[in-house]
Simulated assay, not measured.
Amino acid sequence: MSDATLSRSEFDRDTAIHPREPGVYDVSLSPGWAIGHALNGGYLLAVICRALGEALPHPDPFTVSAHYLTASTAGPAVIRTDTARVGRTLSTGSAGLFQTEEDGEEVERIRVIATYGDLDALPDDVRTSAKPPAFPPPEQCFSTKDQPGGEDAGPEMGKRLDLRLDPSTCGWAVGAPSGEGKMRAWFGLADGRDADPLSLLMAVDALPPTAFELGLSGWVPTVELTVHVRCRPAPGPLRVSITTRNLAGGYLEEDTEIWDSEDRLVTQARQLARALK
């Protein structure tokens, strides 16, 4: 990716990787994608998968599974990749993101395994019973400007997104959660960058957690996240729908669907997260 392209999008600049040696990449994790004291898991996944996309011969992530070991912080990090198999249509590899603690010890933050292919080479045949979520148009949804505490009251990452939340999933923001584990929103990047497979990896983890609508208000760190990218998204806003059916033992699942402007299901994901009070 050229410097000119990188300069146009904050997301691209903040997910940039710098080869150190074959399979090893230095990165600088940006504080602009923080949720509270920790960096967003979807942003971190996009950084790691940019490195895997350089290490593997195929361009696009098809399926990615990430285990979050410890919270990542802004600053320098290193990604180490390993190629497991290269085939004609698919290649598989793994990667770990590491940071050095104040005592000099290197700690692995995230472990990822992923299979890559070429989304542009997939056939056009679609047979599905899935339907895009129905909720109001963007102008009738809530943006960061509508927050009770003002636009600056939300997380730092929110300033980099154009999120328009479905009003029916925003009861938590005024102290009246619905009790249903649902969150829906129109999604885009604030700088107007169109979605691509890497930004989809970030988008699956970019909405407020469904735990808020279940009446919880604490941090909801991701334990494991699996993402399936089904096709390259068309330009324009995305619709993101997240559902939780079971919160038990302090853990919940979030099932995510992302639909593009042409009503295509472009991404599916599931994560297990810990609900902290």
Rank of each mutant, 00 (worst) to 15 (best):
M1Q: 01
A4Y: 06
T5A: 09
S9H: 03
F11D: 05
R13Y: 01
T15S: 07
H18D: 07
R20Q: 06
P22S: 10
I35G: 06
I35D: 03
V47F: 02
E54M: 00
A55N: 00
L56Y: 00
T63Q: 07
A66V: 11
L69S: 09
L69D: 09
T73W: 10
A77K: 05
T83L: 01
A84K: 05
A95P: 05
A95S: 04
T100D: 08
G104Y: 00
R111W: 13
V112D: 03
V112G: 15
Y116R: 09
Y116K: 02
G117K: 01
L119Q: 12
D125W: 02
V126G: 05
R127P: 00
T128A: 10
S129G: 12
K131R: 11
A134N: 07
F135Y: 04
C141R: 04
T144G: 04
G150Q: 08
A153F: 03
G158L: 09
R160G: 14
L161H: 05
D166T: 03
V174K: 09
G179Q: 06
R184F: 01
F187W: 15
F187C: 13
D191I: 00
G192Y: 11
D194G: 08
P197Y: 15
L198V: 03
S199I: 05
L200N: 13
A203M: 10
D205H: 13
L207R: 10
F212K: 06
L216V: 09
G218M: 14
V223L: 09
L225F: 07
L225H: 10
R230F: 15
A234I: 04
P237Q: 14
L238C: 06
S241N: 11
S241L: 07
D263N: 10
V266D: 10
V266E: 13
T267C: 15
Q271D: 11
A273D: 05
